[in-house]
Amino acid sequence: MDVIANLGRSSLNILRGMGAALIMLLQSIIGKPQPRKSFPLFMRQMYVVGVQSMLIILISGLFIGMVLGLQGYTILVDFGAEQALGPMVALSLLRELGPVVTALLFAGRAGSALTAEIGLMRATEQLSSLEMMAVDPLRRVVSPRFWAGFISMPMLALLFTAVGILGGYFVGVQWLGVDDGAFWSVMQASVDWRDDVMNGVIKSLVFAFVVTWIALYKGYTAEPTSEGISAATTSTVVTGSLAVLGFDFVLTAIMFS
């Protein structure tokens, strides 16, 4: 009986948490836009969330593309099919690795920072202080961060993918000697703009939404103590990553089957 009661209670808690998170999100993004006030805030967050994540994304993308080139070549060369290296690298990056790895790195790099920053603002009473100054912290603090995360993660995923394909090209063509023309033309023949590129972008939009939302909610509801903030930060990375992998499975099943 206890087990069932516990199960019921924790499901209710999860539902309540999701409801609260939904309300927080709606309150922060709904309302009449004030472009003159919000745009500079948004730009600043694009810098913090997007620009500052660029380096890690570019480097990881390059290395993952190079590894794909190397691994793909050693597998394909056995079948005499090293011509297929181009599509293999491009498709795995466009459909899976670009959106997923970017989202995981984003959760670790930008998501945890967002949680810690907002948690710290709560702990140092900056959020309360905004409220007492008749400024809505959801509109002022949460909203620009949400939009910046939602927009910059797909951009980062595109950069990751493009750099990854170049990495695969350097290893496959320049180093291992796959034919240059074949690499690109076979790739072009099998990569479709809508099915592969656009579906990848849609995936990363979904991931961006989920990861940013989780990070902001965890920060906003963090216990205002140092333990509370560090627990919230960890929880952002764990929950965010699991959510990305779960959604990836669902989206892949819908898109590519």
Binding site: M43, M46, Y47, G50, V51, M54, A90, L94, S152, M155, L158, L159, T161, A162, V163, I165, W184, M187, Q188, A189, S190, V191, D192, W193, D196, V197
Partner: peptide, 24 residues
Amino acid sequence: ILVGVFVAATIVALVFLALRVASN
């Protein structure tokens, strides 16, 4: 300026994917 660079880089990546990678 840096956000501009970020946006420009993304556009370059998108053009690269459109012209070089996908069957345009």
